[in-house]
Write a protein that binds this DNA or RNA. Structure first.
Lengths: 146, 146
DNA sequence: GTTCTTATTGAGAACGATAATCAACAAACT
DNA sequence: AGTTTGTTGATTATCGTTCTCAATAAGAAC
């Protein structure tokens, strides 16, 4: 099975952190790499076809998060979804379906992103808060629920 | 205890929905009205001083949400926080502390909000998704965690 | 390759946040 | 006052997630 460029980067990062890229973990990051939005543990359990037990998925997700390979996303009640970290996938935003809860990535034009960053900077200067990142979430109905 | 303007609006809305504004519910919305950001059930339980049992708080929050008086906010792992709905408090955004998880409201200048809406509109036209609302979340360190 | 060390796995129990249940109760309507 | 219907408090159940621990696999050393 050929290693993608993404997987090489991940493998490298994990080595640095003394974390092994086992087959279960590889399956997980591969699945996240193919997804068009953040995925929950049970999403992964389903799409992976239960070849990795749920408890291992949860544990691997925690490990991968600590290693900075994936990042969590909270947008619906009770579930945490994960996606490959920004340094792997690039900065992007999300469409969140208010009906089914599914989350989809969106790219936004560079100039708009620049505007957005300017807005965040402006706000950061006005409040006692040190901004690290920002997230623009668009809530609405996805194509399936519409 | 004098009724604020906000409470009159809430009372009215609840009447329309055939939902009673009992003392427990009044305590909850009052507490949310004073907060400077969304609050979880256990936040409320603490700040209210356990005069309303936790199970009632959860139930009341569900009822108030269904009635459109409050809206949920998901920004940290596992907990749902609630705030008075937009039609009561006005549109605003959030600062989310990546350390302690606390969420704080921010007002943003009208012209910036206009820009933001333009951005959301632009995106909405490009994707198969019907936007209803948007949320700009700024993640960083709050004054206490900084 | 065999051995040694240490991280990782799988299965199940345990946990925390939230929801559901149900008998006791209170508010509005007659 | 009596009836109807919504609400409460206490408890139990549920669901997502984390923990535990014995069994195992991955790298490192020989």
């Amino acid at each position: 099975m050929p290693e993608t460029n993404l997987e090489k980067q991940i493998a490298h990062r994990l080595q640095e952190k003394d974390v092994r890229l086992t087959s279960g973990r590889r399956t997980i990051v591969r699945s996240l790499g193919l997804a068009d939005g953040p995925r929950s543990a049970s999403d992964l359990y389903t799409s992976i076809g239960s070849s990795v037990p749920l408890s291992s998925i949860y544990r691997s997700l925690a490990v991968l998060e600590r290693a900075g390979v994936i990042s969590p996303h909270y947008s619906t009640k009770g579930v945490t979804r994960y996606e490959l970290a920004e340094w792997l996938m690039g900065h992007h935003h999300h469409l969140v379906c208010i009906d089914c809860g599914q989350v989809e990535d969106i790219e936004i034009a560079a100039e708009i992103e620049t505007q957005l960053e300017a807005i965040v900077d402006t706000i950061g200067k006005e409040v006692a808060f040190a901004p690290r990142d920002h997230a623009l979430e668009i809530e609405g109905l996805c194509s399936r629920c519409n």
